[in-house]
Computed example of a mutant assay.
Amino acid sequence: MDDTTLQEWTLDDTTAAERLDRVLARLASDLSRSRLQALIREGQVTVDGAPVLDPGRKVSAGARITLQVPPPMPAQPQGEAMDLSIVYEDDDLIVIDKPAGLVVHPAAGHESGTLVNALIAHCGDSLSGIGGVKRPGIVHRLDKDTSGLLAVAKNDLAHQGLAEQFADHGRTGPLERLYLALVWGVPERKRGTVEAALARSQHNREKIAIVSDGNERGRYAITHYEVLEPLPSANPVASLVQCELETGRTHQIRVHMAHIGHPLLGDAVYGSGFKTKANRLTQAQQQALAAVNGQALHAAVLGFEHPRTGEFLRFESPIPPNLAELLDALRA
């Protein structure tokens, strides 16, 4: 069965000459402008009965515009049923509390068993198509071994609205992202900001490195941190830190905290030079750290404006059991 939808409009007499893609962005607001441009180039749009392939074509008063939207293509990869901790869900988006160890998106070495596979299985029928494909819209990611809150779009409108908020990182909008981290040592300043550009390491492609501001490969990155608790309170070897992102780069918190001499506990990539610190831990603390099996980082708070209703949504995720046990052990 062909599920192609057909929409038609006739521009009123007050319409000034304007680009076709801009006009359609107003008329078909549930589709992103990039998706509309793709549909125009595919010949799915006519003006006065004639196909128009140029998104920049000017249209004006009296023009009759027809838009055909083919049904979304089946998702790739395929869905895989998994247990998900769903914090919130509606027709536009879903918020997941991701456990540590779960990869978000299929990639080399992780072609299956990812959050994307699970989401396609869970809500594939309600996905109206991101860019013409029935797939969840990933607007931000968490590392495999980072736990916590993750928002995912179900359609173009939500994808565009969330992507804009995450690109802005709360500088001018309402986005709120707070992380809890356990780091080695105690930063000298209780509150501080790390501002250092990041780029893929040229020596190890799996690592991110600090680069100079003038390096054309570098991406501007800012992390704000606050020391919540030295651990233990007397003669501390570690501390509980809250981090707030002003940008969202790959491994940003992990790299920035290591850069100021306080890498995350359990971070084998950026904290390998601190392995001897573990010798200062008690046996119980060492066992609790080993049970974390990755960096001690949790996305604890996520707040954003709903892309359709404008309502501000804020979610909190409790620290997961393995990190809670490590935190308790370090307090002892």
Results as ranks from 00 to 15, higher is better:
S239M: 01
A63T: 07
I260C: 09
V47Y: 07
H140W: 12
V87D: 03
I319S: 02
G173H: 02
L142I: 13
A63D: 14
D2T: 04
V47D: 05
K207L: 15
P106S: 13
V116D: 02
N204F: 10
A300W: 14
I138N: 06
L245V: 03
G132V: 00
G218C: 04
V211P: 03
A100V: 00
Q283K: 13
V301P: 12
P72C: 05
A167G: 09
E226S: 14
G56W: 08
T46A: 11
E229K: 05
A28Q: 08
A118N: 09
L231M: 08
A38W: 03
W9S: 04
P236K: 09
N215S: 07
I210L: 00
E195N: 11
D90Y: 08
L149Y: 11
I120V: 13
G173Q: 05
V227Y: 11
A329E: 05
V87I: 15
L142R: 02
I130Y: 06
G49I: 00
G294R: 07
S126M: 05
V59Y: 11
G294H: 06
G261E: 14
K144L: 10
E80M: 13
P72A: 03
F312E: 07
E80Q: 14
E226I: 06
E89G: 05
P263W: 14
P55Y: 11
P230M: 07
R205E: 14
Y88L: 07
G266D: 01
H298G: 06
L67E: 01
D83M: 08
A291H: 09
C243K: 10
L20A: 03
E316P: 11
G294T: 07
G113H: 07
V269R: 15
A288W: 03
N322W: 05
G214I: 02
F304E: 01
L102H: 09
A107V: 12
S147N: 03
N117T: 09
S239R: 06
L198D: 02
V186E: 03
M82L: 09
Q7N: 15
L178W: 15
R314Q: 15
L302I: 13
W184R: 04
L240C: 14
R249H: 13
